[in-house]
């Protein structure tokens, strides 16, 4: 009989402990979620803590700890951003639901990947199950800037439909890598052959022009588009367009008509850089 009473109390203790754990987590989360400090405020706090640390040599271990922790987290974060090319600029979380082993949070996340910026909203459902945490994304919405790339728009809406956040990021990362690669290649040729190569749309445009500095009117346009399919697979597509004065065209009809086909097969054999280099050399040798 007595041991039954003990059991009742022990059960209550157990459930109270659970309740307290849940409440304090809720309190902490909400405190974190409802507060915002600007970079300036954070910098000020770091500085004044540094002053305190310098002033006294003892009794400030926890402040030093905090600072060390902050620094190591910042290093990790900047390392990851550099490695993946994904920069996060803003993050806000709001806990929508919390029970014993289930949490639903709403995320707002903004950032960029090379020259593409994104804003995401989604819900993350996390379930704790015997030490394992399972996570699932729902209600994913993605806004990308700049808009108007139909390829990218299709990919974005298919990611939204499936909630496939991971694929979105992985694909964006490789898409941006091609973007960056194109920019570097264009820059390389522009610097190497400044009088032949021009970039009417700048380094972020998708074509370059090769001009013969002497014989005006003869132009080669190398168009380099980066396609992304619905599943997020990125493929670069390069093509050659020619602009030739009529008298030259009459003489060398066949050679010029075949040029784009030759360029495409050259791409497969020697790669992008070499193929462009070969084209530029047509002009270099004529100089």
């Amino acid at each position: 009989m007595d041991s039954d009473i003990c059991q009742v109390y022990e059960d209550e203790i157990q459930s109270l402990k659970e309740e307290i754990k849940l409440l304090s987590k809720k309190y902490e989360d909400s405190q974190q979620e409802s507060t915002y400090f600007s970079d300036k405020e954070i910098l000020m706090s770091v500085k004044s803590l540094q002053r305190e640390l310098q002033g006294e040599s003892e009794g400030h271990e926890s402040a030093a700890d905090l600072q060390a922790q902050l620094e190591s987290l910042e290093t990790d974060l900047s390392f990851l951003m550099k490695l993946t090319g994904i920069q996060f600029t803003g993050l806000s979380k709001k806990t929508l639901e919390r029970t014993g082993n289930k949490t639903v949070r709403k995320y707002r996340l903004s950032g960029s990947c090379c020259s593409l910026s994104f804003q995401l909203e989604f819900q993350l459902l996390e379930m704790q199950n015997k030490g394992n945490v399972s996570a699932a994304i729902t209600d994913l919405s993605i806004t990308m800037e700049p808009r108007g790339n139909s390829d990218l728009d299709n990919f974005v809406s298919s990611s939204e439909k499936c909630g496939s956040l991971l694929t979105f990021f992985r694909s964006l990362s490789s898409y941006a890598e091609w973007y960056e690669h194109r920019r570097c290649t264009f820059l390389h040729f522009k610097e190497k052959y400044p009088d032949i190569v021009s970039l009417p749309e700048g380094l972020l445009g998708d074509y370059i022009l090769l001009r013969n500095p002497k014989a005006s009117g003869f132009e080669l346009m190398i168009v380099w588009k980066i396609h992304i399919n619905e599943k997020g697979k990125t493929t670069p597509v390069l093509d050659l367009l020619t602009k030739v004065p009529k008298q030259v065209l009459d003489q060398k009809m066949a050679a010029i008509e075949n040029a784009p086909t030759r360029f495409r097969s050259m791409l497969l054999v020697v790669g992008i850089e070499e193929a462009i280099e070969n084209l530029v050399n047509i002009f270099v040798s004529e100089r």
Partner: peptide, 28 residues
């Protein structure tokens, strides 16, 4: 000042956790 730093630390930790969602995360 400590509260501010603690907030920032939690904020950074949350951002690092978001990298988990991108498929590749890590630490030095």
């Amino acid at each position: 000042h400590k509260t501010v730093l603690q907030w920032k630390i939690k904020n950074l930790q949350a951002m690092l956790q978001v990298f988990y969602l991108t498929g590749i995360s890590g630490k030095l």
